[in-house]
Write a protein that binds this DNA or RNA. Structure first.
Lengths: 335, 335
DNA sequence: TTGAAAGCGCTAACAC
DNA sequence: GTGTTAGCGCTTTCAA
């Protein structure tokens, strides 16, 4: 690899002139510029950007902490991130954390060790928690999708409570009164908000909330299947299931079919996310569409703005959702 | 951010001693070591790894070029990459190329500009093609999943021809004689190999290959749906469809159902990849399982070995496949 | 308009 | 066992 000194020598100028020719050509005379450019070409010179980054103290790298890239929703989020990052000349350092705190901390350390300028976390956990001695300084971090309750960093969220409420209202409007919910891990604020929205709607309809109608899943197809099996074992079955994501809904639907329960005739099923498979399942899934790519692009935008000092205070961006009614939900039997 | 000089001053030693304490503590006396460690702690010192990388000329970054991260199969591949990369202390710079050559070139440039040590390409195209003046030097690159025909870099592949042949044989064994194929873009070697395997099996069974039974898709759910629609419009319909990935198979199945064609009674459908949704569709999909994560982990391993000089010549790793028979394929009607 | 030189933070060769 | 110092490749004053 040739360096700037070689080029300078070849062109018969100083290294400063080479640097200027490449960075601020207007400061260099046309004649010298051409000499330098010729030398650059001849030497096959490619500036060592690592040196540039080192010197400038800016890496233009962003760490992305994603719970599971295998989750279709997150894949779309990352896709949105990538686009904006590329446009704004940043790179993404991806980490598939599997929600492991040590893994998260290990990547968060990249920010502290100057390997990245900032970080985006897609889960409700502060990856710096175990590292920082609880400094009050603003962390170079953006929290998106599932956000921490108490945080002073920019966030990008959906109004999960309102979305869950909307879906529950849809089911209520179809006459359902016993509506089960297959939820995510209890600790998650995202799950908590969606359960809250579900309860809001029930309450508004004057229906008592019942703990036994809540089933625990982990956002995988399998867990949806399993939860549905538990639900079918109830003596007093619900007539509708609201799943916290589409994967669990698809898993649940399969289980219902295997038990001869027809969707939506015998049981309505709704999902959340509107992944591409949602409209290709049988029956096509009623769900909540989230602007996945926009989560990613907004998060990256915010982070870059934060890093480049264009953010005075931490904004909280709320992205819109849309209730997508397909045919996996229908009127309650006998309505 | 404190630096090594501050720590040295604080501990009353030279910077070399601080560096040694952190890198090769056995060379430093216990007493000094403790002094230094205390100073490190007091200063909240975090070594600037960008400086280290700059100096060493090794970034420990790997660029990953993935055609579409939204494709479940690739998401799994990346997941496998991440794991090995982390184990071996490398980071992944992710690029969702959408098969755009300019985008690929722009990221490949990161290798040339010393921002990354090597690159993994998951598509049959040399991202350095437009950059390098056709040097014969070994590129710091590994090609996986869909590989270039002529390349002297390490590759990780499936024997797509054999896999497609196996699937076709399975369909033939069920009595199918008119077997359609929904394939990918024609230029792709992957598609070419799978079509070749399909023809191998037909030929071995003494069945003439017919061009009209090949339908073009692009690996998306939509394209599978569309291709199936075209196929249903034929006067002499096939009795089975072999799709080059699961997404297209799922899209095709929906289309068939919408037209009242029962799977597998009226038409068998097979996929390729065995994504998680494959066993949760209706009917569960007969497919070819590929060790997706292993593609990723192997590719990263090979690349690191190559970069660290542990590879004498470019290996071509062939990963195993498995025919997974579920219920989307069945005996031909009237057999 | 150009050049000389300092210095970003770190490591390692060499000296003591 | 420890210190001094050169230097990785680049940008950016400061001087000429």
């Amino acid at each position: 690899m040739s360096n700037i000194r070689e080029v300078a020598q070849l062109a018969g100028v100083s290294v400063a002139t080479v640097s200027r020719t490449l960075q601020q050509p207007e400061l260099v005379s046309l004649k010298t510029r051409n000499k330098v450019l010729a030398a650059v070409k001849q030497a096959g010179y490619k500036p060592n950007l690592m040196a540039v980054k080192f010197r400038s103290g800016k890496t233009h790298n962003l760490v992305v902490l994603v719970p599971t890239i295998a989750n279709v929703f997150f894949a779309r989020v990352i896709s949105g991130m990538q686009q904006v990052a590329h446009e704004r000349d940043y790179s993404l350092l991806l980490c598939n954390t599997l929600a492991d705190q040590e893994m998260e901390a290990s990547y968060a350390k990249m920010v502290q060790t100057s390997q990245a300028d900032g970080l985006i976390q897609l889960r409700a956990h502060n990856p710096f928690a175990s590292l920082e001695p609880a400094s009050d300084a603003v962390l170079p971090m953006v929290n998106a999708c599932e956000v921490l309750d108490k945080t002073n960093c920019p966030t990008v969220v959906l109004d999960n409570r309102a979305a869950a409420c909307a879906m529950t209202e849809h089911l209520l409007s179809l006459g359902h009164r016993r509506i089960a919910m297959i939820k995510g891990p209890s600790r998650s604020p995202l799950t908590r908000d969606r359960v809250a929205g579900y309860r809001d709607a029930l309450e508004a309809a004057g229906i008592a909330y019942q703990d036994e109608l809540l089933f625990r899943g982990d956002f995988t197809l399998q867990s949806g299947h399993k939860a549905a099996a538990e639900l079918l074992a109830m003596t007093n079955r619900p007539t509708a299931i609201f799943c916290e994501n589409d994967e669990m809904a698809i898993g649940a639907i399969q289980c219902l079919k295997q038990h001869g329960v027809k969707v939506p005739e015998d049981m309505s099923v709704a999902g959340f996310d509107d992944i591409s498979f949602a409209q290709y399942c049988d029956p096509p899934l009623t769900t909540i569409a989230q602007p996945a790519e926009e989560f990613g692009s907004t998060a990256v935008s915010l982070l870059i703005d934060l890093l480049e000092g264009r953010l005075t205070k931490a904004p909280k961006v709320i992205l819109p959702f849309e209730l997508i009614i397909r045919t996996s939900t229908g009127p309650v039997r006998g309505a």
